[in-house]
């Protein structure tokens, strides 16, 4: 079958671009929820802050794994 369109070079960058969409939205949601809850009730900011960091860590992990795997298996298919 003849090659119609060929992508040369590292596809890792494309992979990372796709991988960063989810975490970007996720972290945005976490912090917007925190800002709204602090706006509604300022004294709750200290109590909800720990949960912000749990959410941030778990979500940001996906994006960081995306970068790491991009470098480890820089597929040059």
């Amino acid at each position: 079958m003849s090659i119609l369109a060929e992508v040369t070079g590292s596809t890792a960058a494309i992979g990372y671009g796709l991988a960063a969409i989810g975490p970007g939205i996720g972290v945005g949601l976490v912090f917007s929820a925190y800002i709204q809850s602090t706006a509604r009730q300022p004294e709750s900011s200290r109590m909800t802050l720990p949960y912000v960091w749990i959410g941030f860590a778990v979500i940001e992990a996906l994006a960081l794994l995306g970068i790491a795997f991009g470098f480890i298996w820089a597929g040059t298919a």
Binding site: P50, Y51, I54, A57, F69, I72, W73
Partner: peptide
């Protein structure tokens, strides 16, 4: 490349546990 991948995932899991333990316990 396999061990590096495993190491990265293991390190990420450790990082998350650390964040939860250090910053996440109200």
């Amino acid at each position: 490349g396999i061990a590096t991948g495993v190491g990265v995932v293991l390190g990420m899991a450790g990082g998350i546990v650390l964040v939860v333990r250090r910053l996440g316990t109200p």
